[in-house]
Each structure stands twice: as C-alpha cells, then as structure tokens.
Amino acid sequence: MLNERYLPVIATLVVFILLYGYGMVEYKGFRDTLVFTNLLTDNAFLIVTAVGMSFVIISGGIDLSVGSMIAFVGVLLAYLITGLGIHPVYAAIIALLTATFFGMMMGVIIAYFEIQPFIVTLAGLFLFRGLAYMINLNSVPIDHELLVILSEIYVPLPGRGGLTFIAMAMLALLVIGVVVAKRTRFGLNVYAVGGDVQSAALMGVPVKSTLVRIYALSGLYSGAAGITFAIYTGSAYPLAAVGVELDAIAAVVIGGTLLTGGVGFVFGAFLGALIQGIIQTLISFDGTLNSWWTKVAIGALLLMFILMQKAIVHFTRRYSGKNPASSEEPAMQKVESTQA
C-alpha cells in the first residue's frame, strides 16, 4: 500500500498537473517548453528559499527573516562588487557566510535561550532589512562581466525552452536539500525534532545543535536565494523581496508539509512554489485579469490544501491508520498460534 505520508505531495502534484494541463488546453503558447523553463527561472529564488524553509517547518519552527535576508544579501553583494571591487565569486562566498552566520545566531538564540522561533526570526526580519538600508538606500545595478557570462549560459531544450544558470543552480540546491533531508542523519534528526522534541531528546538526538544547524541552513539557503535574485534582476534594492517569507511558507504548506512539524517533504516545497508560479503565468496569459488575482488564487489554494490535509488525516485515522485489522496483525497471529 502507498504510504499515507506521500498523499499530500501527490495531491500537490495532481493540482500542478491539472493547472498545467488547463493552461495547455486553453492557450497555445502554454504548450511550449519555454513556459516551463521560465517557471523554473522566474521562481528560482522562491524555490531556493522554500527549500531552506522546509527544514525549518519540518522541525516545527518558522523563519520569517528570509525575505529580508534576500534583500540584505543582494545589497551586500552589490556593495562588495561595485563598491569595494571584490571579485563576484569571493563576494558571493562572503555573502553566503554572512547569511549562514546570521541564521546560525538566530538558531543559537532559539535553541539555547528557548525563545520562540517566531519572535527571534521576526526580529531578524526587521534587523536584516535595516542592515540592508544601512548599506544602501537605493536600487543599484550590479555590474560585472561574470554576471554577463552567467546570464548567457543557456542549455536549450526541445521547443523554445532552455535552462538558465539560475534555474540549474536552483535545481542543484533542490537536489541537495532533498538528499540532506532523507539521506543524512542530520535530516532525520530534523524530522525527529519536529515530530516530538521531548522524545527526540530522550532518544539522544542533539536537539539544540540540530536547531542551530537548521536555522543556519535556512540562512544559507536564503542567502543563496539572495544571490539568485541579484543575478535574476541584475540589481540590488533594500526593498526587494518584501513578503517573500510568506510566499515561501505558502509554498511549503501547499507542498504538503504540516506546520506542526515532523511531516513533509522538501520536494513538496518545489511543487508548492511552482504552483504559485503557474497561477501567475495563467493570469498573465489571460491578460484581462489583474495580477492581484494571483494572491486570491494562492489564498484559496492554501486554504484548500490545509482543509485537504485535515481530510486526509481524518480519513486515514478513520479507515486505515488506526485500523486494527492491519495494525495489530502480529497480536492476532499470536492468538492464532496459541490456538494451534
């Protein structure tokens, strides 16, 4: 039998396919691979953020600072490259280290001072936005030949579509996220902490250091998203990516991860972000609808997913999860053996 854990992700996939199918039927232009690859490029920074956010939410926490972090990293990058003349590669490394460090510090406060992640990362939200303003008040272009080279990288696919550098970078970060979540001890510890912190501690999971690493990872991923965003827009602006933390949370939830922690898949966040992107694309194809309809559709979808998750939980509790016929088989076998 299919594990019930996969149901939400499968539901998300079905919704994605339905929306995509609708677009293909409705609009001719939608049938080109270009729509899909553009989806990857346009939403790369959101997907990267959502991958980091997945770890946080699976652990039962929340990270509200990611949007500000994207803006901060962008402005920092611009300052390092244009202002100080540092080579973009070194600038990127410095930016990533800074983002990771800030994430780690939030993790330390959450883990060792036992303050709610909501509060700590809310402080981060204000702090990083403020720091971005301190570096630069205006939108500045990031000029460097490397950025030009990167923007020219294009792996063509059948049709008019093709993979850009940031799409490929995003896919690589996604794969890394999936692997870390499912194939490393750290990843499993994240699930354990989210499932039941007290039990996890009793089982010997290093809860505090796991928490620190989770927020450091989220910092790293939002830092990477900041770089992706800077390459995508070619500029840096302290007011960039306002509210992206909420988009990322929505992506994670639509992807089937429970806000209560312990349940979910990193890959779901990818689908969740793509669904948001595809709604946007559909609305722009329509041409008559205001872009604010995107928000309405995402809101409705989010609600629908949460209700659906409830329904799935209810359904499986009632008809299979707690179904003694399957769950207590060994006990029944024993009864039979005593009879024999």
Binding site: T184, Y191, D196, S199, L202, G204, G262
Partner: peptide, 30 residues
C-alpha cells in the same frame, strides 16, 4: 534506556525510529 513514557517519534516510520542516530551510512549517506 526505555523510559516510562514511550519515547519514540510518532510521525516517523518504525524503521526510522529504530535506526535514528545509528543509521548505516556510506560516505555520510544513509
């Protein structure tokens, strides 16, 4: 130790619970 309160993670599978922190790995991969 087996503590008085069952100390396992309800949202994980039996195998994940049994091998938590002690999974067999190769090159760091479970």
């Amino acid at each position: 130790t087996v503590y008085q309160e069952i100390n396992l993670i309800p949202t994980m599978t039996v195998a994940e619970n049994l091998t938590l922190l002690d999974q067999p790995r190769r090159f760091g991969m479970i």
